[in-house]
Design a protein around this nucleic acid. Sequence first.
DNA 1: CCTTGACCTTCCCATGATGGGAAGGTCCAC
DNA 2: GTGGACCTTCCCATCATGGGAAGGTCAAGG
Lengths: 137, 137
Amino acid sequence: MNIGQASEASGVSAKMIRYYEEIGLIRPMGRTGNNYRVYGDVEVHVLRFIKRARNLGFSLEETERLLKLWQDKDRESAAVKEVAQVHVADLERRIAEMQSMVKTLKHLSHCCSGDNRPNCPILDDLAGEAPHPAGHG
Amino acid sequence: MNIGQASEASGVSAKMIRYYEEIGLIRPMGRTGNNYRVYGDVEVHVLRFIKRARNLGFSLEETERLLKLWQDKDRESAAVKEVAQVHVADLERRIAEMQSMVKTLKHLSHCCSGDNRPNCPILDDLAGEAPHPAGHG
DNA sequence: CCTTGACCTTCCCATGATGGGAAGGTCCAC
DNA sequence: GTGGACCTTCCCATCATGGGAAGGTCAAGG
């Protein structure tokens, strides 16, 4: 299987497959005589694993840890759970941060007439002249 | 006022102040004879505006639009509201995406014994062998 | 007057994950 | 043998930010 077919089968772009190889996330693939990378079902399975991890928001660094744990038959599931829980905590922190932004923005938008007049509480807030400061950071 | 003092007064790093100037977000500052940038209260106010916009999650491109609207006394508040609402929609989309990840991850973590045994539903899911596929993307 | 330290300047590089595209080699089908 | 669809490597861009080097400037204190 060439890289294009592996890409098709895994949902990971050929560009990314080469990149993952470059950064050591996946092993350098064997090459045919014409210098083409060759993939088998095992490699496609790894790529799909990576893609799913990425879809769940894991960084490539976290994905690498998960991949190693997956391939380590002596792993402790606690280690996997730890990676997941740290990631969940990070997601929840970012969600809370964004929700706070949304809350402020919705309030300001609600207070904005949104017509052809120039007066605008959103700009007033950003300019630091409003009763409802931005307050995020 | 030198760039260090403007940074102190605005909360924007000197590095970023120069960058904002470079990309045209703020006007190139006047220089003293020794080539130092000089800032006044007006510039600090602009920098604080930018910082607040960034704290609310606006991109620099959106911030530039807001800045121009702020400085346009003939603006229509509808234009400002539009920028804010588009941004809110984007935030909400990203929040929903992350919440979906959290939901899946919490479920998988809950099903994981998290002890010294290797069996792990989190890895099973990532490997595509689980009854609860990742399903994000 | 000279040193020291705290500023300032520009320039290059790095992040994280991804895409675009150029220039060149290869292979298959017609 | 030719065209098109692949493959290869290499460089550049994104977005916003920081690090750090190399060199200029200034103020305070000896």
